[in-house]
Design a protein around this nucleic acid. Structure first.
Length: 198
DNA sequence: AGTATTTGACCCAT
DNA sequence: ATGGGTCAAATACT
C-alpha cells in the first residue's frame, strides 16, 4: 500500500496592525522628503535664474566697455594716421546693406547682400616709412604684389582683411613718395565715397 | 605642420 | 594689346 504523507503549510499574512502603521509612517516620511526636495529644487532654480541674469548683465557691461575702449582706440589711431577703420566704413555706407557691428567681431559682420558699391579711402602716412607693411591696427593678408607702369620702382601690394574668411574689405598700398591706401568694399562703383586726405 | 608671403600666370576691362 | 587685379602653387617662416 502507498503511504500518504500530509504536509502542513503556515502562511503569514502579516496583518499585524502595528506593522501597517509603520509602513504608512514611512510613506508619509517619503512624501514629506519629496516635497522638501521639490521646494529646495525650486529655490535653487530661482537662484540659478538670478545668477544667470547677473552673469548676462556682466557680459553685456563688459562688451559695452570693450566696445567703447575699441572705439576710443580707433579714433585715436585715425587721428594719428588718418586711416579709417572698417567700422567707420561700414557705418558710413548707408547704401550697402551691412550688419552694424564691431570690427573685432568681424565674423558677425558679413554683408547680408553684396551690392554694386565701393568705398575708398586714400591716406597719406609717414613719408619716411617706405615699407609695405601697414601698421593700422587691423589684420591683413597679403595676396599679391604688382610692379606698376607709373612707378616701376615702387611695387603695389594687395591686402585682404583677415578678420574673417568672408570679409570683403581690401587694401592697396603703394610706396613712392608716400603710402597710398585704398579700402574696397566691392568692385563696381567707380565713385569714391571718401575724399583724398592731404 | 600650419600659416604667411612671394611671384608667375591668368582673367578681364579698357 | 595692355595694364591692373586676383589666384594659387611654391616657398619661407615660426
Amino acid at each position: 500500500m502507498d503511504k500518504i504523507t500530509t504536509t502542513t503549510f503556515t502562511i503569514d499574512l502579516n496583518t499585524n496592525p502595528m506593522h501597517n502603521s509603520c509602513q504608512t509612517t514611512q510613506h508619509n516620511d517619503l512624501i514629506e522628503e519629496l516635497n522638501r526636495v521639490k521646494s529646495e529644487n525650486k529655490e535653487l532654480n530661482n537662484m540659478l535664474t538670478i545668477v544667470r541674469q547677473n552673469y548676462d548683465g556682466l557680459l553685456q557691461k563688459n562688451s559695452d566697455e570693450e566696445e567703447q575702449s575699441r572705439t576710443r582706440k580707433r579714433k585715436l589711431l585715425a587721428e594719428e594716421t588718418g586711416i579709417i577703420g572698417h567700422n567707420d566704413l561700414i557705418k558710413d555706407k548707408s547704401s550697402v546693406n551691412y550688419h552694424q557691428c564691431c570690427c573685432d567681431e568681424w565674423s558677425h559682420c558679413r554683408p547680408k547682400e553684396i551690392k554694386p558699391n565701393v568705398s575708398r579711402v586714400h591716406v597719406r602716412v609717414d613719408p619716411s616709412d617706405m615699407s609695405l607693411v601697414v601698421k593700422d591696427g587691423y589684420q591683413w593678408r597679403k595676396y599679391g604684389q604688382k610692379v606698376t607702369r607709373d612707378n616701376p620702382s615702387s611695387p603695389r601690394a594687395y591686402y585682404k582683411c583677415s578678420f574673417a574668411p568672408h570679409c570683403p574689405v581690401k587694401k592697396k598700398v603703394n610706396t613712392c613718395c608716400f603710402k597710398l591706401i585704398f579700402f574696397h568694399i566691392n568692385e563696381k562703383d567707380k565713385e569714391p565715397k571718401y575724399t583724398l586726405v592731404t
